[in-house]
């Protein structure tokens, strides 16, 4: 499959390797990955290119490479997560790291310890990389300012979820062969979604055309200033898109005023079987999971041949391996 010939050409330079042979390379400067907003298009492309190399590790007989052998990775999670944490755990294990889970409910957080103290205590145990998820935007940034080890943001409040954004973009590039000029829709609770924000920053830098679709209460006009088109009528635009990424309806918000009712939401913005009849034939259907079947999408949309949902999960491993590898390299070089 053609996964696009894109390279981070401008940012690469030639260096003499140990044997004197020329090697194309890029100086990867970031020991943390906190968001896609602060990365350049070349840097995002470089992560995607690196992830391609790591994709092969998961399909071999020995699903392990020694990149992080003897290193320690901690999952520092202040918010529930199953798939993201599992994906980071598997990715770290495939890089031969030791990995420990630190979850807020079972920890001294419940005894009143501050985030800064928690992070520094964890680092003092000899940790090389912290994967941090927090309900507050900016929490991983605070951790990064207070430790010397690498920090990767695994989702902070309504701000960013950079590895999810990267795996979505990677999946689109893998299937479509390109990103520039593609029409991408992100549908649902955009205002509360860190997945939507990370996708926005990455996709626009790489030249895709992004439309946010949803009710006025969930898709604020303010996103226009960041380069996205806003649309409140899914049916009027559904046939245009090369990619439709459905966000999860966060059921905990149903009680609030932003959702009149689940049935109404599903009728207006769900990817139903009727709507699937009107999409482009080669549309790519995506979802960051977990899916509420029958609410934001029908089983037909989720399981059909246009669905890339399980491919997203598989690609998440390669992307997270690449990110951990690059951050660790930058940390060791500095």
């Amino acid at each position: 499959m053609n996964v696009g010939g894109s390279t981070a050409g401008a940012a690469r330079r030639s260096v003499e390797s140990a044997t004197g042979a020329k090697a194309e390379s890029m100086v990867w400067p970031h020991k943390h990955l906190l968001g896609l907003e602060e990365l350049s298009a070349e840097e995002i492309t470089f992560i995607l290119d690196t992830a391609e190399a790591f994709e092969g590790v998961s399909t071999r007989s020995v699903k392990k490479v020694p990149v992080l052998r003897g290193r320690v990775v901690v999952n520092l999670f202040f918010e529930d997560s199953t798939r993201t944490r599992t994906s980071f755990t598997l990715a770290a294990q495939r890089l031969s790291a030791d990995i420990v889970d630190f979850t807020a409910k079972t920890s001294s957080i419940s005894k009143g310890e501050s985030l800064k103290d928690t992070a520094r205590n964890i680092e003092a145990m000899g940790v090389d990389l912290i994967v941090c998820r927090h309900w507050a935007a900016g929490a991983p940034h605070l951790v990064a300012r207070n430790v010397n080890c690498c920090v990767i943001n695994a989702g902070d409040g309504r701000h960013e979820h950079p590895t999810q954004g990267l795996l979505d973009i990677y999946t689109i590039r893998q299937v479509k062969g390109r990103l520039a000029g593609l029409k991408v829709a992100i549908v649902g609770d955009v205002g509360n979604s860190r997945v939507a924000r990370s996708n926005l920053f990455g996709l626009i830098k790489l030249g895709a055309e992004l439309t946010f679709v949803g009710p006025t209460t969930l898709v604020p006009r303010a996103f226009e200033a960041l380069g996205a088109r806003i649309c409140h009528d899914f049916d009027s635009v559904i046939g245009e898109f090369d990619v439709i990424n459905m966000l999860r309806v966060q059921q905990e918000r149903i009680a609030s005023n932003v959702f009149p009712s689940l049935r109404e939401y599903s009728r207006l913005f769900g990817l139903t079987s009727e709507r699937m009849a009107r999409v482009k034939p080669d549309v790519l259907v995506m979802h960051p999971g977990p899916i509420n079947r029958g609410i934001e999408m029908s089983a037909e949309a989720a399981d059909g041949h246009q669905s890339a949902i399980l491919r997203q999960v598989t690609n998440g491993l390669a992307v997270r391996m690449a990110v951990m590898f690059l951050c660790k390299q930058a940390a060791e070089a500095s």
């Binding site: 390797s17 090697a23 390379s25 100086v27 390299q329 060791e332 070089a333």
Partner: peptide
């Protein structure tokens, strides 16, 4: 591509580009 198996990644620093095997 042997980048993932090198023992001198720290020496060649952030310049190592991983390519597909």
């Amino acid at each position: 591509d042997i980048t993932m198996y090198r023992d001198d990644l720290a020496e060649i620093g952030p310049s190592a580009v991983v390519r597909t095997t």
